[in-house]
Design a protein around this nucleic acid. Structure first.
Lengths: 337, 337
DNA sequence: GGCGACGGTGAAAGCGTTTTCACTTGCCGG
DNA sequence: CCGGCAAGTGAAAACGCTTTCACCGTCGCC
């Protein structure tokens, strides 16, 4: 099965390689008759252009890089699969960049000129806000960027309204009559995203709105994992004056928190209400009240924005926000006396 | 910031491009002195070879394609992140191929000649067993393949011992005194992998070993999701003679199953024991007894095998099996009278 | 002291596309 | 009828590397 190149197609179709190239890519200035012939010859020979040659010649890769902090989180997986779906559909390749630590981060973002810019036409960054320095570097290599999960000024961003989401969760708790609320957050260090501070803001704003005071001691940081939530809740339970309800910034942390309660002999929601964030697929199995976000849709939108940037004409920076929705289940109730 | 090409480096270092190429890639036949000079000039100019040009010239891509069925599953995310880690570490790119349906599957596997073989040097397929026809097609384009999660004859495979894993779970249930066991499996249709039948085999073998009879009516298929497990368990609970314990082929299904029990007013493990498979990060939050597998490690091993195939000398087909481990928590106990 | 071998190097030929540019036609309007 | 313009086409120059091959010293060896 010898390599079939564009040249062979040209030969068999009795035209030049230039014409084949044009015909196959749907460019103008090819007569319908010629185009048909070329297309059918190509099909017959089962010709596939070599993407590398095309990339080299055209200077475009038809590839977008996706940078994520950590795949194994539910949220990340959803986003990536949303991106993948539309990218594949539009004939783009997707190259994964796992940004595990500072080192890799530098390699991927800072040094992006050599790193990414020759491998991809653009990059979608999931839940990672670039530093100012990094932003400058990005700008230098005129690569299109789109952020998902963080509203990054001057860069196309697709986000959820974390403030509103957190507020809805918090209001729900308040409306049930809770006045001593706990917060299981994710520290910037653990998860260098903008979501934690935003959700924190929403949480505090709802309290403020209701005139309820927040005891700073009632905030613990998890690392967005079940274990992190578990330990955070244990710490809260150790307090002499414990909260009667907690808002965890992710479902996984919420589940860890519920576990801690159970081990401490507290019933949920009887003695402790818990609300999470995400609505992961299995959240219903523990009756978790949570804030639903459609992470896959976030990814899909980001991919669409990217393709528009790559193929459409220049346009202003865009920001799209997809709504969240509180879903009430059985992990929350009025506080017991 | 003009493009810095290999030519510029050669110029500044006072050598030919050939020498630069050799020096930078650590090839022999370059004097240490020359190499040092080239390396430092390259660093100074911040030179990065264009991967596309390199691929075109060398005929190798330093990219491996990863085909997965569905990213959002815990298992898949783990595997991919394991792969990513070692690939990145060794200077390979990773391109993601989401194989969602038959259509894509054909495109990705069947048509692999044009599809993958020019984009990647090899492919790692996660949890998908290719049909015989597909295997022939793969063989045609001399691409190295490695399977993870399925022992595919003639192809390098890294797997866990599903039979043994399922047996350990089942024996555990039996040793507690259960004799009416239920099985929540994943149909081949829902999840075209070899794990479900293998786990089923292990389950049946353990029963057989113990001389316990299996009521075929006690098997329901989920789709490896929490919801699937939930519905499967509901069906089991509807039986006039229900099992007293069930083995679910994934933790997510197990959690759905536990939920169904709770809704039906059954206590776990009091009136129903449940054991899962995977040991997902949050399994401990519901006290799930389960069979732990290190999915990230599976991915890492697969990536290493792939790199060896690509860089090492030819060798026989390899099969590596990584052990599983039963972890006992609180979702299982002796049956109630 | 000659001779082959070998390490180090450069020139140049690809690799398989895309894209520019120049060159035909055929057609239209004047 | 002729000049000009547009559509259709091909030749050839990139694109930025890798790799082969030939070449030149230097060495070790008989």
């Amino acid at each position: 099965m010898a390599r079939v190149t564009i040249e062979k197609v040209a030969e068999r179709a009795g035209v030049s390689v230039a014409t084949v190239s044009r015909a196959l890519r749907g460019l103008p200035n090819v007569s319908p008759k010629t185009r048909d012939r070329v297309v059918s010859v190509a099909a017959m020979l089962n010709y596939r252009p070599d993407p590398n040659a095309a990339r080299l010649a055209a200077g475009r890769t038809r590839t977008v890089a996706v940078g994520v902090v950590a795949i194994p989180i539910w949220y990340t997986g959803q986003v990536v699969s949303g991106i993948e779906a539309v990218l594949t559909n539009r004939g783009y390749d997707l190259t994964l960049l796992l940004i595990a630590d500072e080192l890799v981060r530098t390699r991927a973002l800072g040094d992006v000129g050599g790193g990414v810019s020759k491998r991809a036409d653009g990059a979608i960054i999931v839940d990672l806000v670039p530093t100012v320095t990094e932003r400058l570097l990005l700008a230098e290599h005129r690569l299109p960027w789109v952020m998902v999960g963080a509203d990054c000024p001057t860069i196309d961003s697709v986000v959820i309204d974390n403030v509103a989401g957190a507020m809805s969760a918090t209001r729900h708790l308040l409306s049930l009559g809770h006045t001593r609320l706990g917060l299981i957050s994710g520290g910037p260090a653990a998860f260098p995203s903008s979501s934690p501070p935003e959700r924190r803001t929403g949480f505090l704003r709802a309290l403020d709105e209701a005139g309820v005071r927040f005891d700073p001691n009632h905030e613990r940081v998890g690392d967005f994992s079940a274990l992190g939530g578990y330990e955070a809740m244990q710490a809260l339970l150790d307090l002499r004056q414990r909260p009667t309800a907690v808002f965890a910034m992710s479902d996984e942390m919420a589940m860890g928190a519920m576990r801690a309660c159970e081990e401490a002999g507290l019933t949920v929601p009887g003695e402790m209400s818990v609300v999470g964030f995400d609505d992961v697929d299995w959240a219903f199995t523990v009756g978790l009240t949570t804030v639903r976000q459609d992470a896959a849709e976030l990814g899909a939108i980001a991919a669409r924005l990217m393709i528009e940037r790559l193929e459409g004409e220049a346009c202003d920076r865009r920001l799209v926000s997809v709504p969240t929705e509180l879903v009430e289940r059985s992990s929350t109730s009025a506080p017991s006396q």
